[in-house]
Amino acid sequence: MLAVENLHVFRGDRHVLRALSFELAAGCCLRVTGVNGAGKTTLLRALCGLVEAEEGVLRWRGVETSRSAPGYHAELAYLGHDAPLKADLSGRENIRYAVGLRRVLDREAVSRALERVGATAFAERPVRSLSAGQRRRIAFAALWLCGATLWLLDEPNTNLDTQGQELVAGLIEEQLRAGGLVVAAVHQDLHLTAGRRMDLVIPGGR
């Protein structure tokens, strides 16, 4: 479903990713590990075209596509270190504006997403007043709602308590069951109980 061949990425003068290749089938989760600064985040950002790659081919659904092709972007969702939310808007509003760019939403759909991540209680308060963990849940509600086929998650479990981590594991398993793909840059284990897994270790940061 997603194939990457001979990916080379430089950050300034540092040759961060060297000749990286992997193939990810539908319903499979790729766990990307490596020491800090190895290039896990760079890989995720390179996969979705936020970072220019010096070299490298990406095949999506078997077809070679540009990493910044709108069609490809419409099918992926990227969640970075911090939840991409506007502090002055409420959780509900943030979801409505973020996911609304991709899907036609009604109030009902947003409520369902908030319910799924257990964020209904604090969904109406401005995000400014929420804890990092609560913001993460709102971000996952948006991720779940936009129904992207490919998830690119950068350390999904940051700021999450054990209950939150179980929620993330559940969401990822649901995504894999539905034939979706997940590429997750992780430090600790994701405690996945179901779904196929693959590992990719990026050599240490120099």
Partner: peptide, 11 residues
């Protein structure tokens, strides 16, 4: 706050 990135990735 990362929302501009989401615009770029929205399709």
């Amino acid at each position: 706050d990362g929302t501009l990135e989401q615009f770029a990735l929205s399709g």
